[in-house]
């Protein structure tokens, strides 16, 4: 995409046509990779054997559903994507893909992914995937994102559904374990995004997105990060006492929660002058740690499930 310029996808040589990669970029591949991982863990830790090919297909279509909601989000948010530094290189603001194409792709892939997951796994999983797409595209993108500073809190549910969909794809029903995996991501999302918003504030302000940092200031955001991190801890630890947890998970979770709490505490103690002086070093390190936090929690679930056949994982 080196020939993108400010002329809406035009170069001196003429119009630029979107390549295959530009349509793939509409599906937010980085978000999809997280969805693949959490959905796969949800599916593998379920106490039901799933044929490997069915598992592969299920995870693929859960990821495709997430990609479809990403395309719908890019269609809806094209105007604010153009303003933000982080997003203005996306295919629509760069003029490579027309908004209508993104809408068409998003709707088509939504239908396809829901239908195929229903066929590959079960109707319940397909219905939950459809609800996830609806939640992200309509509830978060169209409704909450531009109307409330709590957008991240409620909208975080969209990112929390994939492990639950994976679990339902395997078992056909929702259980306590699936709810706790959901809760882990749901409670993790606000401190994760708010620590990002602390050092990306100017961009959200320019786009008019009511992030907490913009509407209530950074002091309130710092308070919120600490409170939500404290609330996250019992949710993360509780999963350790269910059938998907075990001593390994509990040990990993205790360490990670201690680290996250320590990071949230450090963010809370700082004021703006100190943060600006060191280029938001603490906020950036906590943001990076939060990614590791989630990855290792789900990794620990997987380790417990993988060790079970040898009589080691679980309680």
């Amino acid at each position: 995409m080196s020939d993108i310029n400010a002329n809406g996808g035009m170069t001196e040589a003429g119009p630029v046509e979107a390549g295959f990669g530009d349509y793939v970029a509409l599906l937010k591949p980085r978000v999809m990779s997280l969805v693949v991982f959490t959905a796969l863990v949800g599916l593998l830790v379920a106490p039901v054997h799933v044929h490997p090919f069915v598992a592969f297909t299920s995870v693929l279509f859960i990821a495709l559903g997430a990609g479809a909601s990403g395309a719908l989000n890019m269609w809806w948010d094209a105007d604010i994507d153009q303003v933000m530094r982080r997003t203005k290189g996306r295919p629509i603001p760069a003029g490579l893909v027309q908004p209508g194409e993104a809408l068409g792709l998003g709707l088509a892939l939504s239908g396809l992914s829901v239908m195929m997951l229903s066929l590959a796994a079960n109707i319940m999983a397909g219905a939950l995937l459809a609800f996830t797409i609806f939640f992200y595209a309509v509830v978060y993108s169209m409704w909450l994102k531009r109307s409330t500073p709590q957008n991240i809190v409620i909208g975080g549910a969209a990112g929390a559904f994939p492990p639950m969909v994976g679990w339902v794809a395997a078992t056909g029903s929702v259980s306590l374990e699936a709810c706790l995996m959901f809760l882990l991501i749901f409670m993790w999302t606000p401190p994760h995004f708010w620590s990002l918003a602390l050092f990306m504030n100017s961009d959200y302000e320019k786009a008019g997105v009511p992030m907490l940092t913009v509407t209530h200031g950074k002091r309130v955001t710092r308070n919120h990060i600490l409170v939500y991190t404290i609330a996250l801890v019992p949710c993360a630890l509780a999963a350790g006492f269910t059938s998907i947890g075990g001593p390994i998970y509990l040990a990993v979770s205790a360490l990670l929660n201690a680290g996250f709490l320590w990071g949230a505490w450090r963010i809370w103690r700082r004021d703006e002058a100190v943060a600006e002086a060191d280029g938001y070093a603490t906020e950036k390190s906590v943001f990076k740690f939060s990614i590791l936090y989630l990855f290792l929690h789900f990794g620990a679930f997987l380790a417990e499930a993988a060790l079970k056949p040898w009589g080691m994982g679980g309680w």
Binding site: G14, V16, E17, F20
Partner: peptide, 26 residues
């Protein structure tokens, strides 16, 4: 532009072939 179109068509072709293989396997 033709190189881009070719890449796009090839990509789409591979995706469709993959989808057919997936449905067959399933």
């Amino acid at each position: 532009i033709y190189k881009r179109r070719f890449g796009r068509n090839l990509g789409l072709g591979l995706v469709l072939a993959g989808f057919v293989a997936l449905v067959f396997g399933l």
